[in-house]
Design a protein around this nucleic acid. Structure first.
Lengths: 390, 390
DNA sequence: GAACTTCGTTTACTGCCTAAACAAACTGGA
DNA sequence: TCCAGTTTGTTTAGGCAGTAAACGAAGTTC
């Protein structure tokens, strides 16, 4: 019979304590064995022994002596961020962006390609070519490429299969399996908004914040929900369809079946559609230029979209009571002209209890939230495994 | 320096394994030591030793021999549900309902009192009197009254302070501290909807289901969100104000500051208000009687409210992608006339991916969801402590 | 340069789990 | 009725991880 649960034994203790030591070094920079012992409560002897294992595994390095505190100089330990490299991909509708990062998520190389023919076969071909190019750029290292993370514009299930990608016009694709077969490393596939949420959580505006909602405002509206510092996925593995939260009971019909969906009023598409009706340019960059020039009609349009954006965000705030809401993706470029209207709508529409703590931010990483988040998936998978082997 | 985290040592192993053994017995009814060993993967010797501790602590009992499987007869072990008793209170606007339960949550005694003068001082006085009466009903037991759980109609922070209880017209009350000082046992205070969600999760329609949303439809609409089998509370400890999710961008103004709040269209209040406008009786029970008699106008009114209820639920489904949505509290009495319209609205307004798994249910425990849930808080606090002392 | 600190390792020991042996209790077939 | 085979639960010997305390090495301070 298979063990029905994880029981406590010596191996488990060692894993737990190894993880504690490892995470200390990872998060709190150069530390001596003595400092780790004091911080963690573990005995000095224990720390020494575990550190030895981590050094053997090339995950931690001695980087020389530190300052003395009135006695023998400590030997400082640092996480070896170059023990391996991760690849992050943001698969857009008409572009592929890729990064090569070290194990701390620092970008080593970044590339962007335009997507020539976005049909399935040539799309996949181009994707693997791009990954090949990034792999070729990786320096020599003990663990090599530790994994690949990919953010895609569509709904992905928990096995890494794209179920539905309306703007790519791809059908059901088991992308994780496909890429794993090609490259023989762990692959994580997730929705672009979830990847973006992770990116901002780890490297951007959401660092250190427990409850964060990332709103990706592009062609549609996608969302990544982080609760207790972890990505929340619903029962079937794909929640966060907040773009289809209805804000008008008898509103415009949406292709999803609902009426009055938020993304029909507050996305880039909605903006451009309104612009068209009013005889304004139907291009985001041109509208931004026009706003910059002070055109009153453009400014009013941005304010109106901002109000709708704020109305949806207010709903999100009343539901999740998050610490921050981060607005990302293409629309974050127009933050200057949206900010005020968004804030005003949120202030008006949320309960005062929520408002006190909550802040609205725009993405720190701009259009790189998703690639960075995708790379983080790969790093996290690797480090999770390491912690359980250590 | 205080230990910054839980490190792994022998004590921890023992706690973990004791919890495994204890939970096995708790959840899987009478079990022999041999069966526990096989299920858990723990060695027979280990199980024997841990069971001894649990028997010494009066938490587990030997209930005699079981059926032989061709060898020595096993000694069956059972959780001692009478090792202590818990008290659950549902503090309503004009009533106090209380239960005394054993440690499995079985109701031993149940009482209901009408709330005579709901001002703060006499309200608290009556509350303590009611608790006193329930305590007097508890049989002799090793642990006595292990705790008190109270569900209240208002917003409660994580320290058990009522911040805002509009219908009680109480101000800020540190209820947890007050009751703990009186009775010297652990006290848990939570919102009525959260308590109801817990009640249905443990003893009602949501048993064994990971992601459950409980919608308490009464004077207003409150919600309790259970994700991964645990109550989700947002950043500040009070989320779930889904009653104030807006479903109309330019809808009726709400006292919360927002416009078009769901509870303005789908609560009992909304029902009665509409009934009044149409010259129908302004009492839920009378409307139900009228619906039972087949009155077409009443049926249409229920259908209309059901549609609004469904529209809000559809939003919830698109956001959380839960396994079930449970409609509880007073409006669940009218389930027969709401059900169809709710289901229809949800079917129309949700993404097909979500719809496949998701079911809409009405509360199993009817108006007892909250008391039962409140009692569960007390039980859970006690068992949590037990598991860590083992 | 002597006394005091601090760092990290070595040594002796404790506690918990495990495998294996074992005694007790039961079944079933000859 | 008796004995071989099974199952249960305890006892015994051993391994492994963490701890405390002692210790040597390396610094600092006056």
């Amino acid at each position: 019979m298979v063990k029905s649960q994880q029981t406590g034994d010596q191996t488990m203790i060692k894993k737990i304590n190894t993880a504690i030591v490892f995470d200390s070094v990872l998060k709190n920079g150069p530390l001596s064995r003595a400092q780790i012992s004091e911080r963690s409560g573990l005995n000095k002897a224990t720390v020494s022994s575990l550190v030895l294992d981590l050094i053997d595994a090339k995950l931690v390095e001695e980087i020389g002596q530190g300052e003395s505190n009135g006695g023998r100089k400590p030997v400082m330990l640092l996480f070896n961020a170059q023990a391996g490299y991760a690849i992050g991909i943001d698969l857009g509708v008409n572009y592929i962006r890729g990064v090569l990062t070290d194990l701390l998520g620092h970008v080593i190389e970044e590339r962007e390609w335009s997507m020539k023919r976005p049909d399935l076969t040539s799309g996949l071909k181009q994707l693997t070519e791009c990954i090949d190019k990034l792999i070729a750029l990786a320096p020599e290292s003990p663990y090599g490429i530790v994994g690949i993370g990919i953010g895609v514009p569509g709904i992905v299930d928990d096995k890494g299969t794209i179920l539905f990608a309306p703007n790519l016009e791809w059908g059901r694709v088991d992308l994780q399996q496909y890429v794993e077969d090609k490259f023989r490393v762990p692959v994580t596939i997730d929705n672009e908004a979830n990847a973006g949420a992770q990116g901002e959580q780890k490297y951007g505006a959401g660092r250190g914040i427990a409850h964060q909602i990332y709103v990706s405002v592009g062609i549609g509206i996608g969302t990544g929900i982080i609760l207790h510092k972890e990505l929340y996925k619903g029962a079937s593995g794909f929640s966060g369809e907040l773009g289809h939260l209805s804000i008008e009971y008898n509103g415009k019909p949406c292709r999803c079946g609902n009426q009055g969906c938020w993304e029909l009023y507050a996305s880039e598409n909605a903006l451009l559609e309104q612009a068209g009706k009013q005889g304004l340019p139907e291009e985001l960059d041109e509208l931004i230029a026009s706003a910059e020039a002070g055109d009153e009609r453009t400014l009013a349009l941005f304010r109106s979209i901002g109000s709708y954006l704020g109305a949806g965000i207010a709903n999100i705030v009343n539901v999740f009571n998050p610490d921050v809401v981060i607005i990302g993706n293409r629309m974050s470029k127009a933050s200057r002209w949206l900010e005020e209207a968004v804030q005003e709508a949120v202030d008006m529409r949320t309960l005062s209890y929520h408002r006190e703590r909550m802040r609205i931010l725009f993405a720190d990483l701009q259009d790189r939230s998703a690639v960075r988040g995708a790379a983080y998936y790969a790093i996290n998978t690797f480090l999770g495994k390491v912690r359980n082997v250590g």
